[in-house]
Design a protein around this nucleic acid. Sequence first.
DNA 1: CGTCCCAATATGTATATACATAATCGCCAT
DNA 2: ATGGCGATTATGTATATACATATTGGGACG
Lengths: 248, 248
Amino acid sequence: MSLSETDDIEGGEILSLHQRILSDIREKILSGAWAPGHRIPFEHELTAHYNCSRMTVNKALSQLAKAGLIERRRRSGSFVRQPQSQAAVLELHDIRIEVEALGLPYRYERLERLKRRSSAEDRARLGLSQSGPVLALEGMHFAGERPFALEQRLINLSAVAEAAEEEFLQIAPGPWLIGRVPWSEAEHRIRAMAADETIADALDIDASAPCLVVERRTWSAEHPVTHVRFIYPAESHTLVARFTPSQG
Amino acid sequence: MSLSETDDIEGGEILSLHQRILSDIREKILSGAWAPGHRIPFEHELTAHYNCSRMTVNKALSQLAKAGLIERRRRSGSFVRQPQSQAAVLELHDIRIEVEALGLPYRYERLERLKRRSSAEDRARLGLSQSGPVLALEGMHFAGERPFALEQRLINLSAVAEAAEEEFLQIAPGPWLIGRVPWSEAEHRIRAMAADETIADALDIDASAPCLVVERRTWSAEHPVTHVRFIYPAESHTLVARFTPSQG
DNA sequence: CGTCCCAATATGTATATACATAATCGCCAT
DNA sequence: ATGGCGATTATGTATATACATATTGGGACG
């Protein structure tokens, strides 16, 4: 019920009061000592316990509320929330980084480059409502001499006109776009797929072998920028996502 | 360079000053008006612009810094950060929810239940260092009459003793565990795999058909709790992850 | 007995203020 | 030139205070 007797603990790191309140309460919740639904002490009680001002307590509680660990209700108090949907953070690195992390030399090679007016399929991929110029690219990321991932990309030239001038022979379009276009939103779709003949050929795997497909659509201030599909042979790649409720 | 002339804008919602500062600056960054590396106005300039106290500005900037949009350097000012690694939030819902979202009746059925001392493989899956009792479960999630996902689960009975008493005949272990065990950390691995004979049989798909595999390891206060592997037929499932830099 | 309204209460937001801390600039002495 | 040192500056953290706002509980009154 009450907070732990941390008053005499000395061995820890140097934490600001703010951070100490945060981690104290988080620990109570994550350890289960304060179950979902439990009412945590009122601000004025914490103020007394930590011998600090209400502002400091308030900031810490507001942060916990924003992180989704607690819910605050006026006149009633603050309550531990039910564990919500399992949300995990998926870090999608640049492929060069991934390959180099394996200790293998990285190389990108363009397979195809086509400038055209957007087809209906292109518009569906990009989420465009009207026709316009697009750049369709296909390229291979190599780890050493082995194909690592096949990239199929569509760039909306109305949003990124400069891309029309770029050949992308050895420069992968991903890193090129980052830094040039401030992207404000992205959507990822992850699925498994059997390699068709063309893909199997390009990746040098058996036809109908399983592949991991990661598709990403990117917007910049409401405008669709690019759609990209990465196709990895199943054995070459695993995505790792980690969830930690600590974010303060 | 300067902030937009929002002084005469009236049509917007009712926002607190704090939120208005946040969204103003976020908009500048996401629209690209303030490129990465750009120094945003000093706190005292924003104080003057919004005609408010430094504390209010400071809180907003601190929040942007925590969200990763800006970087703050003492004596130098605050700067727009380079877009970092593509981090996406992956929501992993309960399978019942997923199935019901498709408008199909949901059903869980236990296939196997085995209590044993942990084998070396079990310990590897759970991340345990020493031997102890575990519960191995296998079950099927159905969407209507079609198999939707195969679940292979391992529960560390040293961490969740009560699980030993539970039959899990129609109750899926996932929902059962949530609420009983406060989990503090989870790691997910996502990959593609070809169905072997057993799996293909269980899921009623062709042998060596591609599957999406989602593995999750869960800890509660440093103790491994459970390891679960969900195997989805490729055509039945796509994971969707969304990234928005806005989180204020 | 039910309904309306007010007072009490907990959180929400903002201010002015103070001092700490880290980094940089420029001056000065070598 | 150059190396060090102190003043300046911007952010970091905390306090006391004030008023706003939402919600609950209880009392007055029909």
